[in-house]
């Protein structure tokens, strides 16, 4: 999976491309922690090029939500494909990211 981080005003955008699974979740978690330590208010996961989210990816999203709550930041998920959105909705964590 390729991960690119962009900063726009008070927002960090993580652009993910590929499968958000066991192999990529660790790098996404590291990038997400980096973003949380920066002086931004919002962190957005650009999911437009994510084909699949596994349980390892869901775990990172829950951790991201918890960490963001502590640091007073807001996390959002953008441009999810219907399949990815369905997975996240089924796990019941979609309301955390709206």
């Amino acid at each position: 999976m390729s991960i690119q981080v962009k900063f726009e005003k008070d927002m960090a955008i993580l652009c993910l491309e590929g499968n958000f699974d066991e192999t990529s979740s660790r790098s996404v978690e590291e990038k997400m922690m980096e973003c949380l330590s920066k002086d931004v208010k919002n962190i957005r996961f650009d999911m437009s090029k994510v084909k699949y989210v596994s349980s390892a990816g869901i775990r990172v999203l829950i951790i991201a939500y918890k960490k963001a709550l502590k640091t007073g930041k807001k996390i959002s998920l953008a441009a999810m494909s219907p399949k990815v959105e369905e997975t996240i909705r089924t796990v019941g964590i979609l309301p955390m990211f709206v």
Partner: peptide
């Protein structure tokens, strides 16, 4: 694995981490 995370998500405001 998804079921485990679904329940950790459901109880998210009951624990720190």
């Amino acid at each position: 694995q998804m079921e485990i995370l679904r329940h950790l998500g459901r109880h998210i405001h009951s624990y720190c981490e």
